[in-house]
């Protein structure tokens, strides 16, 4: 087992506040799959999520057309979110490194349970920011106090009043 990874809250906040478009590799059109949950949640929070999955290419997933590969995504990608098994993640990371300038990719995020330290080192050497073994939905919910609603330990302690817009 590798050492658990630690990312501080400010680092994660900065990433989630900085990216707007996310290419979700391994997105599923099935509504009860974890990737569908994450995609729907991130859309609700204002992100544009572009699904990437060769097996669902051309299909509509939550209002977006699924692309077969990262290279086929027509628009700039701020972040690549990888919903693939750890042993397949490296391939996606290398594609993202190759496309980083043309697609303006800045961040590679591997989902909860997905980790490839060697691929992460290649991406970081290429100037990309990498997060592994985390879920952006869970981290967004944790940092915005929503995870607390389910009785989870967010690790966040503050006596500052959060600014909220009245929705």
């Amino acid at each position: 087992m590798s050492e658990p990874l630690f990312y501080n809250d400010e680092f994660l906040r900065g990433i989630l506040a900085g990216v707007r478009s996310i290419a979700m590799v391994g997105a599923s059109p099935k509504w009860n799959r974890p990737s569908y949950f994450a995609m729907k949640y991130l859309q609700e929070k204002g992100y544009r999520v572009i699904p990437v999955n060769p097996r669902a290419a051309g299909q509509d997933i939550l209002g977006e057309t699924c692309c077969a590969t990262l290279a086929e995504v027509p628009d700039p990608i701020d972040m690549v979110d990888i919903f693939r098994a750890s042993d397949a993640a490296g391939e996606t990371v290398d594609e993202a490194i190759a496309l980083k300038d043309s697609k303006r990719i800045g961040v590679i995020w591997m989902q909860l349970g997905v980790r490839d330290d060697a691929a992460a080192a290649r991406a970081e050497a290429a100037g990309l920011t990498v997060i592994m073994d985390r879920c952006p939905k869970i981290e967004y919910g944790r940092l915005h106090n929503e995870l607390s609603w389910g009785g989870f330990n967010t690790g966040i302690i503050t006596s500052r009043r959060r600014r909220t817009r009245i929705a």
């Binding site: 501080n8 680092f11 920011t129 607390s148 690790g155 302690i157 009043r161």
Partner: peptide, 28 residues
């Protein structure tokens, strides 16, 4: 950019964990 997760002491968590100020009214 990365470091060890911050950890507050037991007594601090006993008073603060789970209870941020209520954002709409500011109730502490």
């Amino acid at each position: 950019t990365k470091d060890r997760k911050e950890r507050f002491g037991f007594e601090t968590r006993m008073i603060h964990a789970g209870t941020q100020p209520e954002p709409i009214t500011g109730a502490r």
